[in-house]
Amino acid sequence: MGNPVVPVRRPLLRRWRERLVEGVGVRFDADTRCIVHRPARLHVRELSVERVTRVEAGNRDIAYDRVFLFFHAEGEETLVVSELDKGFDAFVRDLRDVFPGIEAWQRAVPSVAFQLTAVDLWTRAAPGEPAG
């Protein structure tokens, strides 16, 4: 049994600056290997990519189709990122090596209007199985 990876805590001053100065959005912090999502001015959610067990793309019909990425982690609330979040395109580019297949998130948009769709983009392989 291997040693679990302990996530690196991001520096306190950087976290404060993000909460008080930077705008709402999403990004991948390569130094600490964390997804940093800011859905509101003073709300920041961080999730270590090592804790992610599955990445799913899905849509919700509101007035228009909007695609969301769902990052599932064992024992934690699912992190939901919208394609309309600031920095989404760069975020997906940065994570394509970490979660191969994430760049195919557009497949969650159905060809039929008002149809809900969910697509698994990446799943962590069980020990001894190939990644996929």
Score class of each variant (00 low, 15 high):
20 L>S: 07
81 V>A: 03
39 P>I: 02
24 V>K: 14
90 A>H: 09
28 F>L: 05
49 V>Y: 00
66 R>E: 15
65 D>S: 12
39 P>K: 00
25 G>V: 07
36 V>N: 03
85 D>L: 06
96 R>Y: 08
79 L>I: 05
94 D>G: 03
70 F>G: 13
56 E>T: 15
73 A>C: 09
102 I>W: 08
66 R>F: 10
83 E>S: 12
98 V>T: 15
39 P>H: 01
81 V>M: 07
78 T>L: 01
52 V>D: 08
49 V>L: 05
97 D>I: 07
89 D>N: 00
93 R>P: 06
96 R>V: 11
36 V>L: 02
96 R>P: 09
74 E>F: 10
63 A>T: 08
44 V>A: 04
59 N>M: 11
42 L>I: 04
59 N>E: 12
84 L>Y: 14
75 G>E: 05
29 D>Y: 01
31 D>C: 05
66 R>P: 08
72 H>S: 04
69 L>R: 10
68 F>V: 10
67 V>K: 03
21 V>E: 04
26 V>T: 02
96 R>E: 11
41 R>L: 04
61 D>E: 12
49 V>A: 04
62 I>L: 14
25 G>S: 08
61 D>W: 14
89 D>V: 15
50 E>P: 03
33 R>W: 12
51 R>L: 13
43 H>R: 09
90 A>K: 13
50 E>M: 06
72 H>Q: 13
65 D>K: 10
81 V>D: 01
20 L>M: 00
21 V>C: 00
20 L>Y: 04
20 L>F: 11
75 G>T: 00
24 V>W: 08
101 G>H: 08
102 I>M: 07
31 D>H: 10
20 L>V: 01
21 V>Y: 02
39 P>V: 05
78 T>S: 09
24 V>H: 04
29 D>Q: 02
87 G>K: 00
23 G>C: 01
89 D>S: 13
99 F>G: 06
44 V>C: 00
24 V>N: 13
63 A>L: 12
67 V>F: 07
74 E>H: 13
57 A>V: 14
62 I>G: 15
75 G>L: 00
101 G>Q: 03
64 Y>A: 14
30 A>K: 08
75 G>C: 03
28 F>T: 03
77 E>P: 07
28 F>C: 04
51 R>F: 10
103 E>F: 03
88 F>V: 12
89 D>M: 01
33 R>F: 11
94 D>W: 03
39 P>S: 09
29 D>A: 08
20 L>C: 08
48 S>F: 08
76 E>G: 02
55 V>S: 04
